[in-house]
Design a protein around this nucleic acid. Structure first.
Length: 305
DNA sequence: AAAAGCCCCTGGACGC
DNA sequence: TGCGTCCAGGGGCTTT
């Protein structure tokens, strides 16, 4: 589920739990996700202190005191849950009799739906962070800080959409001469890193641009940005910022309830709203769904041109 | 180099 | 209730 806003919300949720803390223990419950965990993964993480937790595109990066970075990607179905310390057995477990694991100073009750809990981190003096991922499209690896920027995971990534590097001139320079449609162009992590299927649809709606339009129409023949490119930039920024804001507030409430970093509920203008009215003021259009590159695209054919 | 297609994996929703 | 089909917010790899 995670696109940039969700990953950023997870980062903000995990930050106070992890940063400045020592990872007392790590349990791997299988040998791989999308790819195998690296050699000696547990030994290289156990005992390390997390000095900071950052995000690049859809990757979470936990910087360790060893000089290595623990790089994590949530794939399609990855999520982290946090259990703050440890009364065992938890009253919430409901006597379901989940498997019990001994971690560091305390016992962790996996509960009833732990079949896809693949990685468990015990934080010294502070709780348990669990990575759960049914589809296992996620990823965890360790990269030396020296090598990180040049690593294959990061080397080809485009600009951060919330940074200053994303601007109309940049989009135009990348879009010039492209035959791909705008949807595919914005989904390409080498152009803008962190957008996914939902927020591309949402950003194009905000910019009143059709997903079927050629990406090259962001650039004039001279290579200068068109007015469309100028519109697209604030559309991308604003939808991501709104999602992060909404998710952040939901996160607080959710953690107060049960410590779970659940994904936020967010209402979309077009995504998942096929057949419903377009929300652009004054527009009489209806949201349509099409398929591009095997993925659903939602848009209004009336106000998005 | 760029674009299109296929693959990885599991679970949930839906129709019969 | 059970079974088959389709769909899902990720990215990487191969082919053209």
């Amino acid at each position: 589920m995670p696109e940039l806003p969700e990953v950023e919300i997870v980062r903000r949720g995990l930050e106070p739990v992890l940063v400045g803390k020592r990872i007392a223990d790590v349990v791997l419950r299988r040998a791989d996700l999308r790819e195998p965990f690296p050699e000696r993964f547990v030994e290289r993480v156990r005992g390390e202190t997390v000095t900071s937790l950052t995000r690049r595109a859809k990757y979470l990066v936990a910087h360790l005191s060893s000089g290595e970075a623990l790089v994590m990607h949530l794939g399609m179905s990855g999520r982290f849950t946090v259990k703050l310390p440890p009364r065992s057995p938890s009253p919430l477990a409901g006597g379901r009799g989940g498997e019990e694991l001994q971690l560091g100073d305390f016992t962790y009750d996996t509960g009833c739906d732990a079949a896809h809990d693949h990685v468990i981190f015990a934080i010294k003096g502070g709780g348990v962070v669990t990575y759960n991922d049914p589809r296992r499209f996620g990823l965890m690896t360790l990269i030396g800080e020296q090598d990180r920027e040049g690593h294959k995971l990061f080397r080809g990534l485009g600009v951060e959409p919330l940074g200053n590097e994303l601007n109309a001139a940049y989009l135009a320079s990348k879009a010039r001469g492209r035959t791909a449609d705008l949807k595919a162009f914005l989904m390409d992590q080498r152009i803008v890193a962190g957008l996914g299927n939902i927020y591309v649809s949402e950003a194009l709606w905000r910019a009143h641009l059709s997903p079927n339009r050629s990406a090259s129409s962001l650039a004039k023949k001279s290579g200068r940005p068109t007015e469309r490119a100028e519109r697209l930039v604030p559309a991308i920024r604003s939808v991501l910022e709104a999602a992060i804001t909404a998710g952040g507030s939901t996160l607080r409430n959710y953690r107060n309830a049960n410590g779970d970093l659940g994904y936020f509920q967010h209402s979309f203008a077009v995504y998942g709203r096929e057949g419903e009215r377009c929300l652009t003021p004054g527009c009489r259009g209806t949201v349509r769904r099409t398929v591009q590159g095997g993925r659903s695209t939602f848009y209004c054919g009336v106000c998005q041109r």
